[in-house]
C-alpha cells in the first residue's frame, strides 16, 4: 500500500526528475535527495516508502539518464503510474526491476494523497480511498520476466546458466 503523489501534467522530463547538476554521482541515496526537485521541492520531504507517483502522458521524456529511475526508487517510490511513458525511461525502469504502469484513466481516478494498492499480475490498481478498482494492461511477459528476475543483468545471467 502506498499514497499517491499526483502530478496533473504531461511530459514530466528527466531534467525535472533529477536535474543534471546532480549527475556527478550515481549514488542512489544521494540522487534520491533531489528527486523531482525542480518540479516539486517538497516531494522528498513528503514521500514515504511504498508511495506511488501518478502523472499524465510521456513521463520520463528527455535524457537517457538511468539516474531518473534510481532517484525515484531511492526516494522509496514503489511504482510510477502514467498515461504513457517515454521510451528510454520505460526501458530503464524495466531493466532495473522497477514497476511502470500505463493507465489511460489513472490520472482522472486518483487524487493526491489517495491510498493505493497495486496487483501487478492481475493489472488492477485498488484506490482504497475512493473505493474503486482501476484496471490496467499488465506489463508484457518479457518485461515481467526481467522485473521478476530483478533486472536485465540478473535476467541475462540467469539465461546464460
Amino acid at each position: 500500500m502506498g499514497r499517491a503523489h499526483v502530478y496533473k501534467r504531461d511530459h514530466t522530463n528527466t531534467d525535472e526528475i533529477i536535474p543534471a547538476r546532480y549527475l556527478n554521482t550515481d549514488d542512489e541515496a544521494e540522487l534520491a535527495k533531489h528527486c523531482l526537485e525542480d518540479l516539486d521541492k517538497d516531494f522528498v520531504s513528503k514521500v514515504r516508502p511504498g508511495d506511488i507517483i501518478v502523472a499524465g502522458e510521456d513521463f520520463g521524456c528527455g535524457s537517457s539518464r538511468e539516474h531518473a529511475v534510481w532517484a525515484i526508487r531511492g526516494a522509496g517510490v514503489q511504482a510510477v503510474i502514467a498515461k504513457s511513458f517515454a521510451r528510454i525511461f520505460y526501458r530503464n525502469a524495466i531493466n532495473n526491476g522497477f514497476y511502470v504502469i500505463e493507465s489511460p484513466d489513472g490520472l482522472e481516478k486518483i487524487n493526491d494523497g489517495d491510498e493505493l494498492e497495486i496487483d501487478y499480475k492481475a493489472g488492477v490498481i485498488k484506490n482504497i480511498t475512493a473505493g474503486i478498482d482501476i484496471k490496467f494492461n499488465p506489463l508484457p511477459d518479457f518485461a515481467l520476466e526481467i522485473i521478476n528476475n530483478g533486472g536485465l543483468l540478473e535476467h541475462i545471467t540467469k539465461q546464460q546458466k
Binding site: 550515481d26 535524457s63 528510454i88 526501458r91 531493466n95 532495473n96 536485465l152 543483468l153 541475462i156
Partner: peptide, 24 residues
C-alpha cells in the same frame, strides 16, 4: 545518451539507452 539517434543521418540505426542496457 538520448541523442545517440544522431547517427541515423548516416543511414544507420542509432538509439539512446540507459546504463543497464549499456552494461548488457
Amino acid at each position: 545518451d538520448s541523442h545517440t539517434c544522431t547517427y541515423g543521418a548516416f543511414a544507420a540505426f542509432g538509439t539512446g539507452v540507459g546504463s543497464t542496457d549499456l552494461a548488457a
